[in-house]
Amino acid sequence: MNGRRIIYRQFGSPASVLSVEESPSRALKKDDVLVKMTMMPINPSDLIPIRGAYAHRISLPAVPGYEGVGIVEEVGSNVSSTLIGKRVLPLRGEGTWQDVVQTKAAHVVTIPSTLNDRTAAQLYINPLTAFVLCTDILNLRPRDVVVMNAASSALGKLIAQMSKLRGFSFIAVVRNDVYKEELLQLGATTVVNDGDESVYDEVLAYTAGAGATVAIDSIGGEAGNRLGACVQRNGVFLAVGLLSGQQVNWQGLSSRLQTTLFHLRQWNKTVTDTHWHQAFNTLISHVSEGILTISNDGTAYELANVQQAVKQAEQASNFNGKVFLLGQK
């Protein structure tokens, strides 16, 4: 099955280096499935590699995109034909920004009819990360106090919801008050504006001087260092992002805290396929039941208009929701 794909042959500004090409015909491997894509979101984690942040592990040319939803069109000889026609997430294989994606049958996640395409397309990067962090990695419980910066992000909003589900306290650190009320409604215990208030003072006041038990850092640099200072001795400092482009003082932080990094890609490699699917099944149940919510707001662009789409996705002042790409009809 032929179609189009978004591709980059050099690193640089996504709007400049991305182009649309016809996908070459490929033979389907015996354990693979072919999925006709319907909708793919644009995430910061999709754009960062295009700029060259992970050039050491990316072979060019490359197709971007980690998430998306589509319909199974074909299956390999070792795969049950009952998958044909099912709506799935084709993950951990090729980049998703193309009309047709090929991946292993073991790495497709079937989506129930209760979830629309916009919700389904966003289930992987942020929802699975939030779920795994709060369960597998940190095993957060009611006694825990978690402080997180860049908490108005999609991940931060999901952590806020997980705090309500798991019972831990969540101190959301933001740069403005735009999402303050939303974060409180979602489950945040309190919201601290890093521009107007001292995060350190607010955390110590909330914890009666004890400090947080866990910090989740999305920014790095001085913001990450300040966040680490809010954590009690032998607490956990977990880095999930590097929005500042600068590392924290790992040596200083590790002298008094348990420090670690989380990459969903690495977690995928450490767990069995059975555990991976169990995590997804629980996550999908929570979303289907409304325990966890994912915003459907945003704009959708045809695949051919990818330059316009990534420009909108990169606008720092964009409060209009997620930007999506649409597959071939």
Rank of each mutant, 00 (worst) to 15 (best):
R4D: 04
Q10N: 07
S13G: 01
L18K: 11
L18A: 08
S19D: 02
E22K: 14
S23K: 15
S25Q: 09
R26N: 05
K29H: 07
D31E: 06
V33H: 02
L34C: 05
M39K: 15
M40C: 06
M40S: 05
P41V: 08
I48H: 03
P49D: 13
I50A: 03
R51P: 01
G52D: 05
G52W: 11
A55R: 14
A55C: 01
R57S: 04
S59N: 08
A62F: 13
E67K: 09
V69T: 06
E74R: 15
V75Y: 12
G76L: 12
N78K: 14
G85Y: 15
G85A: 12
R87S: 03
P90Q: 14
R92I: 09
E94R: 12
G95I: 10
V100L: 11
K104I: 02
A105P: 00
A106F: 08
V108T: 11
I111C: 01
S113T: 11
R118I: 09
Q122P: 03
C134K: 10
C134L: 06
P142K: 15
R143Q: 06
D144N: 08
V146D: 04
N149C: 03
N149Q: 03
A151M: 07
A160V: 07
A160G: 02
S163T: 05
L165T: 04
L165E: 04
R166Q: 13
G167D: 05
S169R: 14
F170V: 05
R175D: 01
R175L: 11
N176A: 09
K180F: 10
E181G: 03
L183F: 10
T189R: 13
G195F: 13
D196K: 15
D196L: 15
S198K: 12
Y206V: 05
T207C: 05
A208L: 06
G211M: 09
T213D: 07
T213F: 11
V214W: 11
S218M: 13
I219Y: 10
I219A: 11
E222V: 13
E222H: 13
E222T: 14
V231C: 01
N234K: 14
L238C: 00
A239W: 01
L242R: 12
L242E: 00
L242H: 04
V248P: 00
N249C: 03
L253W: 07
Q258S: 04
T260R: 15
F262S: 00
L264C: 04
R265Y: 04
N268D: 02
T274A: 08
Q278S: 08
A279T: 02
F280Q: 00
T282Q: 14
I284L: 08
S285R: 13
H286D: 04
E289D: 00
I291H: 14
I291R: 15
L292H: 10
L292T: 06
T293Q: 09
I294T: 03
N296F: 05
A300T: 14
Y301I: 01
L303G: 04
L303I: 12
V306F: 09
Q307K: 15
A313D: 00
A313Y: 10
F319L: 12
F319V: 06
F319D: 08
K322C: 02
V323D: 01
